[in-house]
Each structure stands twice: as C-alpha cells, then as structure tokens.
Design a protein around this nucleic acid. Structure first.
Length: 666
DNA sequence: ATGTACCTCTTTTTT
DNA sequence: AGAGGTACAT
C-alpha cells in the first residue's frame, strides 16, 4: 500500500492520530479499532515527510508485534526506508542500551540473560541450600514475589529478616556473580544506567526524537520510568492502548499509566477510536454490557457498520469431555456446511491445562489445530541443553548453564563430584568453572574424576575460543559440538517413544537452521543470537505459522481476531479464576473475558460445564458470575441435553451424501 | 552411572 | 490424570 492510500484508508479520528506527530499524544483505541493501522501509517507518514528513520523508536511488548509493525511500515514506504527505524520490544531496547553501558553499573559486558527457567533453577538451588531438602518456599512463588518487588520498587516483605527477603538478597548477589541478569533487571539496569549517567541519557534522548508505544496499558512502573528518561525536550511521545484490555496487572502492569497519562506528560492530545472494524454489533453490545461493570475506566462505546449479526450462543455442558466433543462437532459442521477454513476458528480458554482435552478430541476427529502459547520453543529441554553450552562458552561464570550441561550427556562427572565443586565454589567465592580448573580442588578428587573434569575443561576452552571469534560460523560450530558430544544418541536414549525422538530432533534441526539464518543476516554474533533467543519468550516461530483451528488462552489471543470463536469453561473458579478472586482482581478477569468476546468477528459461542475434573476427580461447577452481567438480549441460552435431542440437520445429511458421492467418484 | 518404581504436586495468565 | 522428581536398586 502506498502512503497516500494509507492515509485515505483512515477514518477522521484515526487520521488525526496519525498526523499529530509533535507533543504528547494518547490514543485510546478500543478493541478492533485499527490501532496498528494508525501507528504504522503514522510512522510511514513521518518517513515520507523526511524525518530520518533513525530518529524513530517504536516499542512493543512482543517480538511478533514488532516484526509485524516493521513489515507493515515497509509495505507503505520505499523499501529500506524503514530499515533504520528502531522497532523493538522494551526488553530488547534495554539490552541494546545495556550492551553499551552496563560496565558503568558494575557488570561485565559479556553478561548473560536468564530466562524464567534459568531464574527458577537458581532460586531453587538457593532455597534448598538455605533450608535443606524440605524447602517450604516454592521457587515459582519466590520468583513472582521477586519480580513484583523489582517492578514496584516496594520491599519484598515487611520483615527484613524474613526468609523470602534473605532469598532475594542472595539471589541478587549470586546473579551478579554469575555475570547474569534476569528479565526485570534488564529494565531496572537500563533505567539506572540512564538515570545515573546524564551523558548516556543525553545520547539516547538525542537519538530518538520520536517515540511510540504500543499496548500502553501493559506498561509497568519501570517502563514508564524508562520512557520518561528517553523522551526529550520536545515531548514527542505517542502511546496507544486500551485500558479495557489491561490484563497483565499480575505481571506488574500499572493501569494508572494510561488512566493518569496526563500526570506524566502534560497537555496531551487525547484521541478516542471507537469505530470497530471487526465484530458485529451484537458482539460489541455484549462486550460493552460486560465491561460497563468496571468502574475505573475511560468510557468508550464501540460500534461498527457490520450489521447486527447472530445472537451469541451460551451452552451448558455436563462435563468438559462433552464440551470438547460438542465443539468439535460444531467445528466440523462449520467447516463442511459453512465452508469455513479451520484457520478462521479459535477456541479460547482461561488456562493452558484446558487445552489438553480439546487437543485430544480434535486429533481424534482429524481436525488440524495449532496450539498457540504453551511451552515455548526455547523452553524445551533439548533446546535449553544446547543453549546452555553456548551460553557457557561466552560466560564461564554462568553456573546455571554449566550445571545444566555438565552431565548432559553424562561424561563421568557424577552428582557427588558436582556437589563438591559447587561447595568449593561457594567457599572460595568463585564460579563453578573456576573451581573445576582449580588445582587445590582437583587434588581432592579421585584420579578418575580428575580425568573426566580435565577433559571437560579442555572441551569448554576449545569451544569458547571459536565462540569468541566474531567471524566464526557459530551454527557450524554448534553442529560440530553436537556431533562431538554425541547428542543424537543421548536424545534417543532419553525419549520414551520414537515420535518423541523425531520431534526433538526436528527441534534441534530448527534451532540450527535459525542460527544459520541469524549468522547470515545479523552482525551481532553468537551473543546477539543468544540475546534474541532469551528475549523470544513469545512463540512466533512456533505454531501460528501452521494451519488449523487455533487453541489459545485469552491472554495470548489479545490482538488477534477470528470469524468464529468459542470461549470454553466459563465457570466460577475458572473465569474468574479462583486465585484472582483471592487476590481481589475480579476487574482484570472481567477485562480478560472482554478481550475473549471481542476476538469474535461473526460467530461467538460461550460454554460452561456442570462438572469438571480437578486433580484427577470430578467436582461440581457453577456458571461464571459474569453471566449475570451480560445483556440477555444478545444471548441464546441452551443446554447440551436439548441440543443432543435435535435430529440431524437436513443440511448435515445432505453434506454427508455429497461427501460420499465425492469419495465414490474420486 | 543409569534405570525403574513410586511419590508428589499440580492449574492462572507471560514480556 | 499426568509430569516431574526422588530413592533405591542394578
């Protein structure tokens, strides 16, 4: 699309938002109101008007969103014109800042980025060391509390001598010794780097004259600090968001950033986008009726010119098994009769564990599906193993990676030896790798263990050398590495089924492919590859490129749209989730449901179950209390019993006949 | 050092 | 019901 056509395609408020490039701008963009179109047209327009791309910064939350934005901008202007614009996530922006100035904060330039998995591994070790085997503190819980403390700047506990506080202190100290930072540190350190070094701050301020932020309702306190440090005198900041879609409060997102935007940036131009281009009016009215029950919000009323549409079906089910089977039969009918593509259909749920049953049922019906979210590609064991090796090559202080790979595959260094090395490293305040290279430590071991360790160290040193050579092809190096440690055999041994071997092999091959690709495309070397991998929490390469029905959490569905949508398991305790009720975040659950509803373009079906398996046994359920808040006018409520007694639809029968004929003639 | 059998805990949501 | 971790046996 050309830039002129781009502007012509915008409605008046959208165009106003795209044309206002100076001063603070707040765009309140309701669901489906074309905010991405506005942002991309805005950037393209700036480029077209001669603003150098290098002065433009657009920040998103996911890599997927960043890539999409870059592509759409490129489509509108001359190729290459957009190349110099910085379009990236908050976290990768911070990495870019830190790779140039982290030494001023007392870290080494070679620092590693720890993912959630690495972080929990470290926390677990600390907790076990402090409390012995019967740890009474869940590492996951600890990581959440630490993240909370880091993001809000509040103390982690009201008591300074509390266990969690001690764990937190130790964790932070050890991270630094490991020459590693976690996700939250990326933000904290970048903010500190800018705050404490006015020269650096000036440099980045000068660099980005125009700043844009997508999904602004998801920003937390630190991200706001970062933005305020980056925005220069001219105050050219434009944020886009929807307070009604703020669903990441549990991760520290601060909804007041958008509700009180004026407090941070004076006299902003506020533009509301309320024309929805996605859904029928029935769907929008249903969504409006629900979200009205939230008090603290910027009033918006979505409308569309898409007509009324069908009523929203609410169906009650005896149990989740029946629910899955019924939805599958609906999907089949939708595909065969209405000639819908499977890609047009999504099943949304509150928690990932709900997907299992749906997956199984879809598989049995031979309907293709893609599971979006779930375990990230980079969290898979085989991938973590390989990345562990590579991370260790670049950062010998990275104990977490070392401990991960030292016995993977086993090489004659057993648990006992590893425990001794860890203890020695703690006693002498050195890394485990240094301990393994320490003469005094080696002398305390059996000859056999000494040999195994010596061989391991030689191996690490050898690969570290080539890993540090910038011109060396790290993809090829990794292939050699895998051959040398005989990883394929190790994989085969550790898989239960041949299919599993196949999947894991494919994953490894995909990783290597990715490395080759990165090596040819990017100049940032192995470190750059590992950085981008660590920040690739979202799963864009994963599954959403495939074909089929989408299985997706409502969180992951934000920003997507589907002609036909199902929301399953809408019961008290699931949506709203029981944990959220305890935490008093019912409003956020309501917004989550709102997000789910507004994904639907034409057809929306909501189901709930009278009973559901939990931890193995069946428990009775109540329909979600949110049903009371929905406008009954837009609903068509039935239960499964009633539906099951309806005779086979004539159209269905006809379709089967048609299929038979095709089979016979084909 | 590796494999097996039992035991535990799990279910929010994820950059 | 399933996964992952631990303990014990080989």
């Amino acid at each position: 699309m050309s830039i002129n056509k781009g502007f012509l395609a915008l409605n008046p408020p959208q165009r106003a938002a795209a044309e206002q490039i100076y001063g603070p701008v707040l765009i309140l963009a309701g669901a489906g109101t074309g905010k991405t179109r506005v942002v991309t047209t805005r950037i393209a327009g700036m480029l077209y008007n001669g603003i150098p791309a290098s002065q433009i910064l657009a920040v998103t939350f996911t890599n997927k969103a960043a890539n999409e934005m870059r592509e759409r901008v490129s489509d509108m202007v001359d190729e290459k014109m957009a190349d110099d614009a910085t379009i990236c996530t908050f976290h990768s922006l911070c990495v870019r800042i830190l790779r140039t100035c982290i030494e001023r904060l007392g870290y080494k330039k070679t620092f590693s980025i720890y993912t959630a998995g690495d972080q929990q591994g470290l926390l677990k070790r600390i907790i076990v060391r402090k409390l012995g085997k019967d740890e009474s503190l869940d590492p996951k819980m600890a990581s959440m509390m630490i993240s909370q403390a880091k993001n809000t700047g509040q103390p982690i506990s009201d008591r300074e001598d509390s266990l969690i506080n001690e764990v937190y202190q130790t964790y932070q100290k050890e991270l630094k010794q490991l020459n590693a930072v976690d996700f939250d540190d990326l933000l904290i350190l970048a903010v500190r780097g800018l705050k404490e070094n006015p020269d650096i701050q000036k440099e980045w301020q000068r660099r980005f004259r125009f700043i844009m932020v997508d999904e602004f309702q998801d920003t937390n306190h630190l991200q706001m600090d970062l933005l305020r440090l980056l925005v220069g005198q001219e105050q050219n900041i434009c944020v886009v968001g929807d307070d009604d879609q703020s669903i990441y409060g549990w991760r520290g997102a601060d909804i007041t950033n958008i509700l009180d935007f004026e407090r941070f940036f004076k006299n902003p131009k506020v533009i509301k986008l309320e024309e929805n281009y996605r859904s029928t009016n029935r769907i929008l009215r249903l969504a409006n009726s629900l979200i009205r029950h939230n008090i603290d919000r910027r009033e918006k009323t979505l409308w569309s010119s898409k007509g009324e549409g069908e009523k929203i079906r609410v169906v009650s089910m005896p149990d989740a098994e029946t629910e899955a089977e019924w939805i599958v039969s609906e999907i089949l009918e939708c595909h065969r009769i209405d000639r819908r593509n499977y890609e047009d259909i999504a099943i949304q749920f509150r928690m990932n564990s709900q997907s299992r049953l749906l997956e199984q049922t879809l598989r049995e019906a031979e309907i293709p599906y893609k599971l979006i979210g779930g375990q990230s590609f980079y969290e898979r064991r085989e991938i973590k193993d390989i990345l562990g090796y590579l991370g260790l090559f670049l950062n010998h202080e990275d104990d977490v990676s070392l401990l991960r790979v030292i016995a993977t595959p086993p090489r004659g260094i057993g648990q006992g030896t590893i425990a001794l090395a860890t203890q020695f490293s703690i006693d002498h305040q050195i890394s485990v790798f240094e301990a393994l290279n320490d003469f005094e430590f080696l002398a305390s071991l059996t000859k056999r263990a000494q040999n195994a360790i010596e061989e391991f160290c030689e191996f690490i040193h050898r690969y570290s050398d080539s890993a540090h050579t910038p011109s060396a092809n790290y993809a090829t190096m990794t292939e050699e590495l895998l051959k040398e440690i005989n990883y394929p055999d190790f994989l085969k041994k550790n898989c239960k089924t041949p299919e599993e071997v196949d999947i894991r092999r494919k994953n490894v091959a995909e990783l290597i492919d990715g490395m080759h690709h990165h090596f040819e495309k990017s100049k940032r070397g192995l470190r750059g590859f590992l950085d981008s991998v660590a920040l690739m929490q979202d799963k864009e390469d994963n599954d959403d490129s495939g074909k089929g029905v989408s299985l997706i959490t409502m969180h992951a569905a934000k920003g997507l749209e589907f002609p036909v949508a199902f929301i399953v398991g809408v019961e008290d305790g699931v949506l709203p989730h029981s944990r959220s009720i305890e935490e008093g975040s019912r409003d956020e659950e309501r917004r989550l449901f709102y997000v789910g509803i507004t994904r639907a373009m034409e057809d929306l079906t909501i189901t709930w179950c009278h009973s559901r398996r939990r931890y193995g046994d069946k428990l009775p359920c109540q329909p979600s209390s949110f049903f009371r808040e929905l406008d009954k006018e837009e609903l068509e409520e039935t239960d499964h019993e009633a539906l099951a007694n309806v005779p086979v639809d004539e159209a269905v029968a006809e379709d089967y006949f048609e299929q038979m004929k095709q089979m016979l003639s084909g």
